[in-house]
C-alpha cells in the first residue's frame, strides 16, 4: 500500500472514530437501560405507548418513596401527601401533587425522574406522569400534577424498597417565544423581556 492510500485510510479511520464518539451518546442510553446506570431508561420523560397487557396484581409489596427535588434555585413548591406508599406489584396507583409558583415570574418546569436502585427503573411503569410534558405555572398559581403508575410483575422479589425522585428543572430560558405565547397567552411581553 502506498503512503497516500494508507494516509487516506487512516484519516478516514480517525473521522469514523469521531462519528463513533457521537454515536456513543445513543449507545449510552442503551447501556443505561440494560445496566440501570442512574436509574433512568430511554424515554423516561416520554409517554409510554405500550399498552399494558396483564392486569394481575400480586401479594408482593414494594415500599416506594416518591420525592421531588428542586434543581437549584427555583421558586416552585411541590407538595404531596404520599411521600411513601406500599405498592402492590401490578396494581395501579394515582399520586397527586400540588405545585405552587412562589416567585415573581411565570415559570416552565420539566421534571426528570430517576429511580434507585437503578436496576428497578425498568419495572416502574408510568401510565401518566407530569414528567411527560413541560409544566407552565404562572406566578402565584397552584396547579395539580399527577402520576399514574404500576410496578411490573417481572420485578425481582429481592427488591423491597424503591425510590423515585423527580428533579425539577426551570427550563423557562429554553422556551421559544411562540411556545411561550401558547403557555402564557396573557403576558407574553413581561415574560420575554425578563429573559
Amino acid at each position: 500500500m502506498n503512503n497516500k492510500k494508507l494516509t487516506i485510510k487512516l484519516i478516514a479511520f480517525a473521522l469514523a472514530m469521531l462519528l463513533f464518539g457521537f454515536s456513543l451518546v445513543p449507545l449510552y442510553g442503551l447501556l443505561c437501560e440494560v445496566t440501570g446506570i442512574n436509574g433512568k431508561i430511554i424515554g423516561a420523560s416520554e409517554k409510554n405507548t405500550n399498552i399494558r397487557t396483564s392486569t394481575q396484581t400480586s401479594e408482593q409489596v414494594v415500599k416506594l418513596q416518591i420525592l421531588t427535588h428542586n434543581q437549584g434555585p427555583i421558586p416552585i413548591q411541590i407538595k404531596t401527601d404520599k411521600i411513601e406508599i406500599y405498592a402492590n406489584v401490578g396494581q395501579e396507583y394515582l399520586i397527586s401533587f400540588e405545585a405552587t409558583n412562589t416567585g415573581s415570574k411565570d415559570i416552565v418546569i420539566q421534571a426528570v425522574p430517576s429511580v434507585s436502585p437503578g436496576l428497578t427503573a425498568k419495572y416502574l411503569h408510568k401510565i401518566e406522569c407530569f414528567c411527560f410534558a413541560q409544566q407552565a405555572i404562572k406566578k402565584g398559581e397552584t396547579v395539580n400534577l399527577s402520576l399514574n403508575f404500576y410496578i411490573d410483575e417481572l420485578i425481582d422479589p429481592k427488591y423491597k424498597q424503591m425510590s423515585l425522585s423527580y428533579a425539577i428543572f426551570d427550563i423557562s430560558d429554553d422556551i421559544k417565544p411562540e411556545k411561550w405565547h401558547q403557555l402564557f397567552p396573557e403576558n407574553i411581553k413581561i415574560a420575554k423581556v425578563s429573559k
Binding site: L10, A14, L15, M17, L18, F20, G21, V25
Partner: peptide, 14 residues
Amino acid sequence: LIMVMPVLAGTVTM
C-alpha cells in the same frame, strides 16, 4: 491515538 483522540474531540465539542 487515532482511535481515542477523535472521541476526545467529540467530547469537547459537546
